[in-house]
């Protein structure tokens, strides 16, 4: 609607929100802000790929790994995103899994979580019987003011998770400011209303100082398959990058240094509770 002034549009949105007795959706608000020209459109040459990894609030993500045996990488990447959402008021990340899939995927292990800067006490594990309960629990947790993020780990492609459901989750997430992550496996893609879709594969790790034979810090190949977050992600779709998880959060790795060369920081984070870890990243963005 080129003829319609942007403030009219905003007024209309507010009116509709008032009629529906609901707060203006954050998504809509963002749209309004953009239409009003607050943010200048960015060109295809993006500033920093890492900027995308500063997780925004109130967004539904889909994190895809090609195979179930890559579940470790998918969870690690997701935690790396979700941990940035933890604040003093939002102190919990809810991890949901179907009861029958525990042996298939494994459960998040408390003693290993600190590597990703998450205190084991902040992860609440929910094991539910079926998809109905899982979706209910997701919505309930998204609506809670004290939850930073909700992670649903799904080994299969359940029928219950269709476009309508993902649209619903996306809207809820936008309204409540809680981010939700759907961890999926396989190469099939369904229609979904998720704002961001990542494809994660583990990559050969860099070398460890003094021990060339040992696996280094986690390294992922991240591909942004879909990014619908406005200017920030414009032109980001289809891009891929190689990142390490280090003491300072995600660090991008130069492709030519990928094989054989020592990484920038070799040691994994050394303290179990490191809430300040990685904040430099979010501050920078």
């Amino acid at each position: 609607m080129p003829g319609l002034a942007s403030h009219d549009l905003e007024a209309l949105r507010r009116k509709i929100a008032a009629l529906e007795k609901r707060p203006l959706l954050a998504e809509g608000a963002a749209l309004v802000a953009r239409r009003m020209g607050k943010a200048a459109p960015a060109g295809p040459g993006m500033a920093d790929p890492l900027e995308l990894l500063a997780a925004p609030r109130g967004v539904l993500h889909e994190v895809f790994a090609d195979e179930q045996r890559q579940s470790g990488a998918a969870l690690g990447f997701t935690l790396g995103l979700a941990r940035q959402l933890l604040t003093d008021e939002r102190q919990a990340i809810l991890y949901l899994q179907l009861k029958g899939e525990t042996q298939e995927l494994g459960l998040p292990y408390g003693a290993g979580l600190h590597q990703f800067g998450v205190d084991a006490a902040q992860i609440i594990i929910g094991r539910v019987e079926n998809m109905t309960e899982l979706l209910w629990a997701m919505e309930e947790a998204i609506a809670c003011r004290a939850v930073a993020g909700v992670i649903a780990d799904l080994a299969r492609h359940p029928k219950a998770l269709d476009f309508t459901v993902s649209r619903r989750l996306s809207l809820r997430a936008a309204a409540a400011g809680t981010s939700a992550f759907l961890l999926r496996y396989g190469r099939e893609r369904e229609a979904s209303a998720a704002k961001l879709r990542w494809r994660i594969s583990p990559a050969l790790s860099g070398a460890v100082e003094f021990d060339p034979r040992a696996p280094g810090p986690p390294r992922f190949l991240i591909e942004i398959e879909k990014g619908r977050l406005g200017d920030k992600t414009q032109g980001a779709e289809g891009r891929s990058m190689l990142v390490d998880w280090t003491e300072n959060g995600f660090a991008s790795v130069e492709p030519e240094r990928h094989v054989g060369a020592p990484p920038q920081r070799a040691a994994p984070p050394s303290r179990p509770v490191a809430p300040a870890l990685g904040d430099r990243l979010s501050q920078a963005s």
Binding site: G110, A111, A120, I125, G126, V128, A141
Partner: peptide, 27 residues
């Protein structure tokens, strides 16, 4: 700190999903 909100969330989820559905890691 949202602790009360969290407790309420746990109550609601536990009453619907069962007492053992929601767990946390304890060392």
């Amino acid at each position: 700190d949202g602790a009360q909100d969290l407790d309420r969330l746990y109550d609601r989820m536990t009453s619907r999903l069962g007492p053992l559905a929601l767990v946390r890691n304890k060392f």
